[in-house]
């Protein structure tokens, strides 16, 4: 009975995803890649939107990893003025709903000359990742025995080379989790790019594909839209299936104590 319930529910949960893939390759009653051909030429060309998204993802993931690694190392291994205050401020980012600070961020990025810019957007995405990422990396560094970096320093390392040569390999699982969550956030986010990016040729994939629904003149091209959905969902699904372990690690440590 329990098995049957689970099976029925599993079908309900998985069916929409399978349907999306199926409907994106159908034209009437026949198999067709027509919708993907239309997607390739949609707007500025899907290549432009993909490039923008990849630029945003690379900047966000790299930036989050660098900033969170240094900050996690600082919090786990050093005492410095303002240490407690900074940690509380980083966690406070979680308390503030991010749609409400996007409007001042829009003005602020304009002042900094980063209006309508993927770099500005990436900086905002990095800020949003910091609470989870710094918390994760601090715990990762704390779980490495101090004797490891002390031994490295006796062997002639300074604090920086001890970090890069000895500690980084030890915190690799934490880095993968942080990178994974930064990837998912920047690949998928819709609201921040919607507000902070205004030129069509700088749109990311979610904004561009959602525009098929919002800015259609009369009729929505449903199959092409589903091709866009599949195009955005597929990398996430593949990564989920490949890196489940790191997903769960993120939930266990990041979410529960936050």
């Amino acid at each position: 009975m329990k098995r049957l319930t689970m099976a029925v529910l599993a079908v309900l949960f998985v069916y929409p995803i399978v349907w999306s893939g199926w409907s994106s390759v159908r034209l009437g009653d026949a198999f067709s890649l027509d919708s993907y051909r239309k997607l390739a030429n949609y707007g500025e060309g899907v290549g432009t939107y993909l490039t923008n998204t990849v630029v945003l993802v690379v900047l966000t993931v790299a930036g989050t990893l660098v900033v969170a690694t240094f900050a996690g190392y600082a919090f786990a291994r050093f005492r410095f003025p303002g240490r407690g205050l900074l940690f509380v401020l980083i966690l406070a980012i979680l308390m503030v709903p991010y749609p409400t600070i996007l409007i001042p961020l829009y003005v602020l990025l304009g002042w900094l000359g980063l209006q309508d810019s993927l770099i500005g957007l990436a900086l905002v995405m990095i800020m949003l990742q910091l609470p989870f990422a710094v918390f994760m990396m601090r715990n990762a560094f704390e779980s490495v025995p101090r004797t490891l970096d002390e031994a490295a320093m006796i062997d002639g390392c300074n604090s920086f080379s001890a970090l890069t040569r000895v500690l980084l390999p030890a915190v690799l699982p934490g880095l993968v989790t942080v990178g994974l969550f930064a990837f998912l956030a920047s690949w998928n986010d819709y609201v921040a790019p919607l507000i902070l990016i205004s030129s069509n040729d700088r749109f990311t994939l979610p904004v561009a594909v959602v525009n098929m629904r919002l800015h259609n003149f009369g009729a929505v091209d449903y199959p092409t839209m589903q091709a866009g959905v599949v195009f955005m969902a597929l990398p996430c699904l593949v990564i989920f299936l490949a890196l489940q372990r790191y997903y769960v690690r993120g939930f266990m440590s990041g979410a529960l104590r936050g």
Binding site: F78, P81, R83, L86, L89, P104
Partner: peptide, 28 residues
């Protein structure tokens, strides 16, 4: 200089928090 070294590692996070979190909070 334990204080300064630790501060230097935390500095990028502090700049991001100050510039893209605290400043917008005041600005809003």
């Amino acid at each position: 200089l334990p204080g300064l070294v630790g501060f230097a590692y935390a500095a990028p996070a502090a700049v991001i928090v100050g510039l893209f979190f605290l400043l917008p909070l005041g600005l809003v």
